[in-house]
Design a protein around this nucleic acid. Sequence first.
DNA 1: GTACTTATTAAGGAGACCATCATTAGTACA
DNA 2: TGTACTAATGATGGTCTCCTTAATAAGTAC
Lengths: 396, 396
Amino acid sequence: MSSLSLKGGDLSRLRQLNSVSVIKALRGAEPTTLSMLAERTGLSRPSTKDVVDELTGLGWVEEVPPTAGTMGRPARRYRFRADGGHLVGVDIGAHNIRAALADLDGNVLAETRRPARPDAPLEERLAAIKRAVMSCLDLGGLTMSDLWMVAVGTTGLVTPEGHIIMSASIPAWKDLDLAGLLGETFPCRVLIENDSRLAALAETRRGVARGARDVVFLHVGRRMGTGLILDGKLHRGFGAAAGEIVMLPETGWVTAPEDLNSSAVVPEGTPIEDAAGFTLAAARNGDAAALDAVGRFTKKLGVGAAAAILLLDPEIVVLGGGFSRSADVLLPPLRHRLERVCLRMPKLRGSTLGDECVVLGAIDYAIDHLDQFFFAPDGPALRPPVRPAVVPERTV
Amino acid sequence: MSSLSLKGGDLSRLRQLNSVSVIKALRGAEPTTLSMLAERTGLSRPSTKDVVDELTGLGWVEEVPPTAGTMGRPARRYRFRADGGHLVGVDIGAHNIRAALADLDGNVLAETRRPARPDAPLEERLAAIKRAVMSCLDLGGLTMSDLWMVAVGTTGLVTPEGHIIMSASIPAWKDLDLAGLLGETFPCRVLIENDSRLAALAETRRGVARGARDVVFLHVGRRMGTGLILDGKLHRGFGAAAGEIVMLPETGWVTAPEDLNSSAVVPEGTPIEDAAGFTLAAARNGDAAALDAVGRFTKKLGVGAAAAILLLDPEIVVLGGGFSRSADVLLPPLRHRLERVCLRMPKLRGSTLGDECVVLGAIDYAIDHLDQFFFAPDGPALRPPVRPAVVPERTV
DNA sequence: GTACTTATTAAGGAGACCATCATTAGTACA
DNA sequence: TGTACTAATGATGGTCTCCTTAATAAGTAC
């Protein structure tokens, strides 16, 4: 995906392509027989076996006992060794730090969340990140050396190299080589991306937008943002500043959360993080003032959403972020507005992944970078810890 | 590019990839020696020769006489046979039909332009298209059977299959299988795309945006539109409706041309197609009323442009279309507005390709689809007419 | 226990790549 | 004119990867 260009090369290159095909066919699927693999990859059976044997030797693939009860000789079955390595996805928000441990198929094995102070100094935040990852590893019974990759999603402008230029909500995030700093903490590859973009990725890989090639993710909450998946890939932009439509004055997005946070139905003294919930709940019950606030909010939301839809013509628009827990309240008025403007109305859905969206996206992002390991140069740094393949017991 | 996925396969697949590498290295370049080719493709010399020999046999590559005056044995030189096939790009506007004949490198060999009536009935317009292509072929001394592809750019919503859903400026363009109709006229592959998108492509391939991966093309003229190049590829959107930010009311794009067409400096009775020219010329000379009109226009233009920039973070924004002849007048106020809003200011340039932009883009679009022919299935329909390679005279 | 079905394994062969080396066709210069 | 030098060519042999085909193996069905 990422590291594989379509350059030609020598014969080993062909084997490499075919190996990736086999792994792609095995990943996330049921244990698979050689015949099925051959059919899926387009290779001949003997060649498929060659590739599978090699991958088994490398520890990427494992044989599982055959199923009984079929006609003919039972086929040997193979599966991707998702447990052969481990990834951690981290969501660094202003108020929370989440982390999740996953296997190479993206299955979440353990999860942690701990609060953070938005204005915490850099060292404190870095230490909290380390603790979050460590406790994930503990929960999974693993140690740092089992880690293959750490992928981090955070607010702000993030360059492809993992530098943070700035963040509106985390003061300590400014002109920072976060990838470099975390690289000293964790003995593995570290990836950094913008949180809204990772949320968009998660929705595309395992959420309501699964399978779509062009996706617009709207993050609605105390902060507004968007993440774009274009042609199946995360769109970062030339200067990593894509998705910042919030800065367009005509959208009114900067102040839009205020509409929900400070409506008449919000009780005096409500902490800001709970305020919008009152408005949205009241609107669900038909309260006029709340509905008015929701109307003002969705009007603003609709301007930015329409801009994205008209420009990009996505297959689906996903509403995520804190406010999307009340997608049932927000979507109808938003749809109403969009239908008046959009040339072609995309699907419009609320996120189902909820708060874990960014962590999951970080994991998926790490998985997208996995193929770097498949045929990594022999340097031990990039070579994943290969354990001997388990040979299943077979009757003699 | 388009038809080549990174699937694996058998050995012929590897040869195919390497052949494409070689063709890519030869295309649009000076005649090249085997050693240079080997270096550029990463292949060994013997393999490179194998590939080149095969391509020569197929008629894709041609040997040219060696250059004298170098040390050592003179190297044989090869070039891509750009004259081995021919493409026609067509720009179907409401008022004009342009066509250009090009070789496989995209060099324009002949060009025609003929006026059209916007409300002409379908048959008349189709006949005009045929005449335009035929006269291009005549000028180049070719016949219909020499044609490999016809690529058409036109206004409106165009599906990937070449159906036109509708067009605001050509009434006859409505629920139309244009690709099918033209396919009956021309005995070759016919491609249809939106004109703004093709203009964007031309700017990316041979205009001011050459080499950029993410490009926003703003078509400013009697109609407003945008074309997007994302990750080096033309972005069409799920329903082929991408780039229609003109429909967003907040931009004011629908009425924006009026600002320039009906300013105080435009003489009474000026035909609409010349009106904006007066305003822009007067603004260039400092006329206050004209500058005011330009200010109003660029303010609206800036809203749509900012939306695109903030969302996509392109490397460069290109101003094209009729009004872009006065890019010197439009760009400074536009830049001024954008700088106040944009998080990262992209490059901002006026088109240098002018009126030919769409035809050139159509040609480039056709070239992007050329690799379909490189190893086409043996069906004669897709197999280009291969002529015997010309063997250069060599001393015996 | 025999027939049938499906996988496995083995053998032979072709295609595509690479490394190496002797040969060739020029230039440079005495 | 002839010799030294240079750089590309052409030919050989070897390796790798894949494919096809055919014989063998391990189950179920009856």
